[in-house]
């Protein structure tokens, strides 16, 4: 049989013409970002522990877009334009936010039309203020004040205050974010909440563990474990030069 090349060329041309049609949506491009704030001040939390949810109603089944706050309380997510509802699941985070009873939180309507910044105003149980970290002869001394923000019927006590130190800027109790939780070095320095007499003058001293390979700085921050609240609240991260 003789192959008719003109037909083949025609077919290829048709394929080429129609094959260029897009068959998919663009990826979301609009950034919604912000941070957890109390009176304009960042609320520091543990990395990857405090979740948030975004719902976009009106598209069949409902399901959240999940995310978590970074340790300085920031969040960022890419979205399509549209109307969203933002919420933080109940009992998550060391703060109160739009509470509707013991295990319910309200949502916040967010209209996403362009890149935007949306700070989430929360009321933390406590804030750590004026934290200073002073290294001296193999020890790190942290001095700070604690402000009790919620003092009404919803107030909660301090269970423990921790001083966390790490080689990198990820500092918390989790996994490898705290060098003093290495089994071969002493536990993180703690102060029991009941033994704190003056919230305006709290001191914790911890041994500075040896670091391999050596580096002349560490990162440190103070975390407060609040009784009955899972997530801890932290002081801003500080890089301490040794």
């Amino acid at each position: 049989m003789k192959i008719k090349f003109q037909y083949l060329i025609l077919m290829l041309a048709l394929f080429a013409a129609y094959g260029c049609k897009k068959d998919n949506y663009d990826a979301p491009t609009l950034t919604l970002k912000g941070r957890l704030v109390y009176n304009g001040e960042a609320v520091n939390v543990e990395y990857n522990k405090v979740p948030f949810e975004l719902y976009q109603p009106g598209f069949g089944k409902t399901g959240p877009i999940n995310g978590t706050f970074a340790q300085d309380g920031t969040y960022s997510t890419l979205l399509f334009a549209g109307d969203y509802k933002f919420t933080i699941p109940a009992n998550q985070g060391p703060f109160r936010w739009k509470e509707l009873g013991p295990s319910k939180r309200d949502t916040l309507a967010v209209k996403v039309g362009a890149n935007q910044t949306l700070d989430i105003d929360v009321i933390p149980y406590y804030m750590v203020r004026n934290a200073t970290f002073t290294p001296a002869s193999g020890k790190l001394t942290a001095k700070f004040n604690i402000e009790k923000v919620i003092t009404d019927a919803n107030a909660k006590n301090i269970e423990t205050v921790f001083l966390y130190i790490n080689k990198t800027q990820f500092v918390s109790n989790a996994d490898n974010m705290n060098i003093s939780s290495d089994p071969n070095v002493p536990e993180p320095a703690i102060v029991a909440g009941s033994s704190i007499t003056d919230l305006n003058n709290v001191t914790i001293i911890d041994d500075l563990p040896s670091i391999t390979p050596t580096q002349n700085y560490v990162f440190a921050r103070v975390g407060i474990k609040i009784a009955g609240v899972e997530d801890m609240i932290f002081s801003p991260l500080v890089k301490v030069s040794l």
């Binding site: 089944k61 409902t62 399901g63 959240p64 699941p89 109940a90 009992n91 998550q92 295990s103 899972e230």
Partner: peptide, 15 residues
Amino acid sequence: NDILSANPLIVKQPN
């Protein structure tokens, strides 16, 4: 989420 969205009467777990 598939169960929750298929049946709006189901309440979420705490925490």
